[in-house]
Design a protein around this nucleic acid. Structure first.
Lengths: 147, 147
DNA sequence: TTAGGTGCAAATCTTTTGCAGAAAG
DNA sequence: CTTTCTGCAAAAGATTTGCACCTAA
């Protein structure tokens, strides 16, 4: 945990930015909720426990900055709010989402299934892939078991 | 073209809705720009040529209605606006997007590459897939050729 | 001391909604 | 007539921005 914060601090400083107390509190919230896909408002509520005087605008500015540095990934599941995920630079950050249309849960699969497809894209479409996004909508295992 | 409008008219009427002049004009704009991924504002600008008195709210309401009837697909590429695509009921509506990070173009691949993966999801994750979405970010063939 | 950061409030942008009137069966 | 639909303007919700103050190298 501390090591990861230290690393993010270095990433910030490498670009001339500071890891202020507000930014650190925001990063800690993201670290402590790595399983979830928090919206800016979610992060704001949680970060207020650590830094009660923080403003929502600062949270937005911090998340935007972290997104530009590729520390977090900004996503949009179509519900009107952006959601933010810490990227895991060690592992392959290519994961996929299982979005349950019944209970709204968003699970992740940590496998990357698209390697072979990306090769085909390069060959057949002359498209150089930088990143991708794969989401499935359906019924999750919890809802399946309930019925 | 007329046949497709007739079909949409029937889909609407089957649910008790009418194909009003405003709705027809909106559908025609979508048909004439099937390659693009228009935002509500885009549709509004284009539809004003055919029906100058139309209001933006009506465009939103029409697009929302068509989305519920699965006539169009509502998408979000993360640029802050929803975009709408006519679905092609004849063909498989499963297509994928190639989003160029350089010029912003959004191309489509009309193949469905995910059949085998969906089987694995059902078996290994007990997740029943209803729909999916696969987008690639990268450099498109036009930009590749320019350089 | 100087650039980067912050909180607050106001502004902006997209989308939704309330309402009174219009259109269609 | 009665339900559906429309345009307009206002409202709502998410995000951004202007600004004066603050804070750390």
């Amino acid at each position: 945990m501390e090591a990861r914060i230290e690393k993010i601090k270095q990433q910030l400083q490498a670009q001339g930015y500071k890891l202020t107390p507000q930014r650190e509190a925001t990063v800690r919230v993201l670290l402590e909720n790595e399983e979830d896909h928090l919206s800016a408002e979610d992060v704001y509520m949680l970060v207020k426990d650590k830094a009660p005087e923080i403003g929502l605008a600062t949270v937005y500015r911090t998340l935007e900055l972290l997104n530009e540095l590729h520390v977090v990934e900004k996503m949009n599941f179509g519900d009107g709010v952006a959601r933010y995920d810490l990227r895991n630079n060690d592992k392959n950050h290519h994961h996929h989402h299982l979005i349950c249309v019944q209970c709204g849960a968003v699970d992740e699969i940590m496998e990357d299934w698209l390697g072979p497809l990306e090769e085909r894209l390069a060959k057949e479409y002359n498209f150089k892939v930088i990143d991708h996004r794969l989401d499935f909508q359906g019924i999750c295992h919890r809802c399946n078991e309930k019925q």
